[in-house]
Design a protein around this nucleic acid. Structure first.
Lengths: 137, 137
DNA sequence: TGGGCCGTCCTATCGTCCTAGGACAGTCGA
DNA sequence: TCGACTGTCCTAGGACGATAGGACGGCCCA
């Protein structure tokens, strides 16, 4: 594994580009795609790839450094910190739990029963796959 | 059932107040809390309750009228349209499906296995115990 | 040593959304 | 008819984030 990282930004998304980039970097580290010591793309390079302003990328690098996820060496580049995987896994679990909790909350307030929640969940897990009877969970 | 409607707005939420109000109204209609013909609170009254500007509420009422969910009678009030439940149930299912799909997508890209997704889901349905994802007991 | 890349910082500008306050016409009941 | 309500519309302003462009010093290597 290592420097295989592609950042995709939707400028019209409901979350600002800087947050989208930060989330994707954190998830890549949590997933092990980016390991401690790995070099991240330069602000100018990623800005071209993701079609955003270099300042936007720079802001993300600085924010993530303050979190302890990245390590910036001016004149050299930014790198994944040693403690990053731990931090990112925690942040990932926190965020995914919160989002799913909000989803369940909203779905219930919209009048859906638990059975319907499970149905939607199974469909989300296998959107284009027919469920097989007795499939092992 | 009927006029039992409380709107809660988080001014610091990631979604703007107008969308929060619109979503809650749509969900209430889909859930049957608001039935066709029911009167909604006036822009000024709801603005006080939800701590937002009357213009913000007015914008929501107008947007929902363009969707066919509400019916505005100037000088009288706004009311739930006849076709609203159908529209809102469709919108609800569409939104919940999209959000859950994005969640599954994100969780997978963050390195979580299907088993862990199911764990998180079960915990979100019944948040009794607190245990980290993938932690061995 | 010089050139090229690196992150950082600064100011200014733009767009979007909500806020603010006022003005208007329609509706209803006393 | 009058007054109190209703939704609608208008302009102005502020908060926030992204954008734009430039300038600075650090690092590496030919």
């Amino acid at each position: 594994m290592g420097q295989n990282l592609t950042i995709r930004v939707d400028p019209k998304g409901d979350r600002p580009p800087s947050e989208q980039i930060a989330a994707q970097v954190r998830f890549a580290i949590a997933a092990g795609v980016l390991e401690p010591g790995a070099r991240l793309p330069s602000v100018r390079q990623l800005a071209v790839e993701a079609l955003v302003n270099p300042n936007t990328v720079g802001k993300v690098w600085r924010d993530l450094e303050r979190e302890g996820v990245l390590e910036s060496r001016p004149g050299d580049g930014v790198f994944v910190a040693v403690a990053a995987p731990e931090l990112c896994k925690e942040a990932r679990d926190r965020e995914l739990t919160a989002r799913l909790g909000a989803w369940v909350n909203d779905a219930r307030s919209a009048g859906l029963e638990e059975r319907e929640l499970r149905e939607l969940f199974e469909r989300a897990l296998a959107p284009r796959r027919l469920r097989r009877v007795g499939e092992r969970s």
